[in-house]
Design a protein around this nucleic acid. Structure first.
Lengths: 267, 267
DNA sequence: TACATGTGTCTTTTGTAAGAGACAAATCGT
DNA sequence: ACGATTTGTCTCTTACAAAAGACACATGTA
């Protein structure tokens, strides 16, 4: 059973911070790594494996996990020697939703949109420099995409990525995007300057469409949600079959832009 | 909008662990206290106040908060010098939901139930020895109860509390319930032995009704959800006006028990 | 039967993170 | 305008948490 899969690998190389995961790390950092690792594996995991996964001493891992379990942030899973996220994290997460108008209303709009159109619909945000699907709603199509909330995808692979980066300095964009991010799942390689060009275009147009980037069968329509005028806080996007007609696509974009605008906080 | 209310006060005296929050606490523990404090206050708070709130040195608090913000567990709120829960916690919370059949299906059932009956409906669980509303759905009645997910209430105040403790040793119950917990909001005081008696009755009956405990205008109907046969993992409950007729109450209990049974995992 | 591998709990050692305190700069209250 | 308070950042010290590693006990497998 492989566990630390492509996603995990991706996360490892993610930020450049934890270069020396070496010795005598701060306990809190170990904990943060543990949480991130569990998020990446998406399943309960043995403490031994966890220690390996975050590259921490076994004894330390046992101690930390115990603290976290006692606090309710983690829970021992079914059979008894695996851990995963706990109820406390769920409760804190709901607190976050409650305190965050945009997310609360955004989830609602996304659900509506996917019900009305029958297409997969998503709310996306920039999360510590990475593109994140914050909420997604499946759509009725048999054809299913991963509904993995919290999934992180390289910015250049997505329409939303182009919108989320609108208004950032060129330099900032450059060091947010790694070399690997520019390589599409099918092996093709984007040019950084093309991507930066796309961002400018998308920002000016107020929407963005990408075809066959993440996979060959879908296109992705995205529209920006603004917090303050000019600042893109999130995007809503629709994932539709790549052969959707020009006309229908146009209609969907119009709808999407309207809903996204509704979400935006108008000064 | 009142905020740091009875709940906050209650949480402070909650577990007996952090008696001497005194000197040289472990960083991780401080973090856990910070999270718990934010959960109690339910709004963004300044770092200085946070330090006071968890009774930690200011310098330490600044350091920890910075780590947490960098990690995305906390976010700086609007005006810039307040913190609250961050997106990461929301994502982890959704991971928990995804990995937890009971919670996922339970939320669904609760929503159905409140839509069908028009009454406030809740899913409750024992969370580190305390009663917790894990999910609640408002109901159509004008008459609104707090829909605060994550709210923690003393076990003896609720019908669910009586069911959740079914099957526990007397001694365990005794040290789970503090003296304060036995004092109702209106000042009346329950006897511990009566409460323990109630638990036995509720466990045997397979449901529980309490009238006018938390407030004078409602009664609370609860039914157990089992994980393994005999072990109460959660409860579903309905909050109805105290003058609801015997007959209607009976019907609701039957419905509630059916839905709760459906949630139970049948070995 | 031996041998490798994983689990959970100890003890001991030592590198460092928590804490006290001092600071400048910003904000408040009158 | 003026002290009084709060905020955010720094430095230095030492109390203590993280790590190493030994242990006892399960498993699985050659």
């Amino acid at each position: 059973m492989q566990d630390g899969n492509a996603l995990a690998a991706r996360l490892d190389t993610g930020p450049d911070e934890d270069r020396t995961s070496g010795s005598r790390e701060k306990g809190l950092n170990r904990v943060l790594q543990i949480l991130e690792f569990l998020h990446a594996t998406q399943r309960a995991i043995g403490i031994g494996d966890l220690a390996k996964g975050v590259n921490a001493p076994r004894s330390t891992t046992y101690t930390l996990v115990r603290s976290l379990v006692d606090a309710g942030l983690l829970e021992m899973a079914g059979d008894g020697n695996r851990v995963y996220f706990g109820k406390k994290l769920y409760l804190y997460g709901m607190d976050y939703v409650r305190g965050n108008d945009l997310l609360r209303r955004g989830r609602q709009e996304v659900d509506n949109l996917s019900r009305e159109t029958g297409e997969t619909s998503e709310l996306c945000m920039l999360q510590s420099g990475r593109y994140t699907i914050v909420h997604s709603s499946p759509g009725t199509r048999p054809f299913r995409i991963s509904s993995a909330t919290g999934l992180q995808i390289p910015l250049p692979w997505t329409a939303s990525g182009r919108l989320l980066l609108a208004g950032f300095e060129k330099a900032v964009i450059e060091d947010m995007v790694s070399e690997d991010d520019l390589v599409l799942p099918d092996g093709r390689r984007l040019l950084l300057d093309d991507f930066i060009g796309d961002i400018a275009v998308a920002g000016a147009a107020g929407y963005c469409v990408t075809s066959g980037l993440v996979d060959a069968y879908t296109k992705c329509l995205a529209a920006p949600v603004f917090s303050v005028p000019g600042k893109v806080e999130a995007t809503m996007c629709l994932v539709v079959p790549i052969d959707t007609s020009e006309e229908k696509t146009g209609d969907l974009i119009a709808l999407l832009r309207e809903r996204a605008a509704r979400l935006s906080i108008m000064g």
